[in-house]
Design a protein around this nucleic acid. Structure first.
Lengths: 213, 213
DNA sequence: GTCTATAAGGGGATAGAC
DNA sequence: GTCTATCCCCTTATAGAC
């Protein structure tokens, strides 16, 4: 069908979101004006309101879509056997996935506070779901005697913080390849939670000495 | 000496900075107006310019003073013997010091991008100096064969990210005491970088077999 | 679908009275 | 040292022409 001259709703919408993402990441939500976004897209400010009800929705849509991508991404990973391998799979997935989306990741933790209360709650719930995926691995490893974790919730948060840190310094053309960064981080994460061999032996011995209980 | 009525420069200055800190931490630098800061202090907007040349200086002073506090704080810590104990001292210092200043820490990494280029460079230099203090410990441990670190720079950044994460969830009246959080984190950090016993033995053996080199 | 024009208000910073 | 008043610019969002 012939389209009316100047009709671009199918491509302008995504371009508005892309411009918002780029500018929010670079200067911060509060510092970016609708006029700047419009200029980046190449339209006038008023035209933006054909694609978003307001500035807040623009931010929320970006954050929600990103968190959904993260959850879907991890769900799509083929899970290996056992907590040790699953922890490695998780750390490698997390690092690779996050380094592929630096802007989304950046605004996802910088601009949470600019969400209105209801939007904030929705995001927190999605974030918690992702954290639970990691904690489940730690709990399983704990139960099988493979991990020595003091507090699974705290350790979950500590590991995610550590992994997130990579986004603040990694440069694709830098000294280290993505695969090498994945390997180093996943190794550190593993060492930080795995049961030491001497402790493992001691525990096995203790179990054998008290087989009834 | 008698002071003129309404003269409060010695106390209003600090109150302006305290109000700015509180509001920047709560809503973000770009989202806070000079009028809001003035209202928090209890003066009119114009009066703020007696204590700061502009809004940017208000932010820079807060960030610079905080980083200087961090550097001075670590310099004042009595250093124990050996990299293992020094790593524990560093992690415990970092966590305690940062948890005592949640607002300063928060704006120090959230508002860096709102600094003008020269101010940003000055802060980056101070941050790097602090990172170097940790990296020096890792390098010493590496040289003495006590740590098994793949890349000291990357590991430094990973550890600091992990430690910083604590500020995003710790609540003073929560489930865990400060001392316990310090212990858990310092334990995780130690395990993540220390040479495993089996590897240590293997290396010692290899060294004995080649005493000349 | 995009534009121009405008409403209604807030922003940083300064001048000058007291 | 603090106030009021003001300058001038920018903000989000909407109305209506094309």
């Amino acid at each position: 069908m012939a389209r009316k001259t100047g009709s671009h709703s199918d491509i302008t919408g995504p371009r508005v979101r892309a411009a918002a993402l780029k500018l929010f990441a670079a200067h911060g939500f509060a510092a970016v004006s609708m006029r700047q976004i419009a200029a980046e897209v190449g339209v006038q400010a008023g035209a933006l309101y054909l694609y978003t009800p307001d500035k807040q929705s623009l931010l929320f849509d970006l954050l929600r879509d990103h968190m959904q991508d993260v959850l879907d991404g991890w769900a799509a990973v083929e899970k290996p056997e056992g907590p040790v391998m699953q922890l490695e799979a998780f750390t490698r997935f997390h690092i690779r996935f996050h380094l592929e989306r630096p802007e989304q990741v950046f605004i996802s933790y910088m601009e949470l506070r600019n969400l209105e209360p209801d939007n904030f709650k929705a995001l927190e719930e999605m974030r918690r779901e992702y954290e639970n995926a990691l904690e489940a691995i730690l709990i399983a490893g704990q139960d099988e005697g493979l991990f020595d974790v003091d507090d699974t919730k705290l350790t979950t948060l500590a590991l995610i913080s550590m992994l997130n840190g990579v986004t603040s310094w990694y440069k694709p053309d830098g000294r280290l390849t993505l695969g090498r960064v994945e390997a180093i981080y996943s190794d550190m994460a593993g060492k930080a939670v795995r049961m030491p061999r001497w402790k493992e032996r001691k525990m096995r011995k203790a179990t054998q000495e008290e087989p009834a209980e």
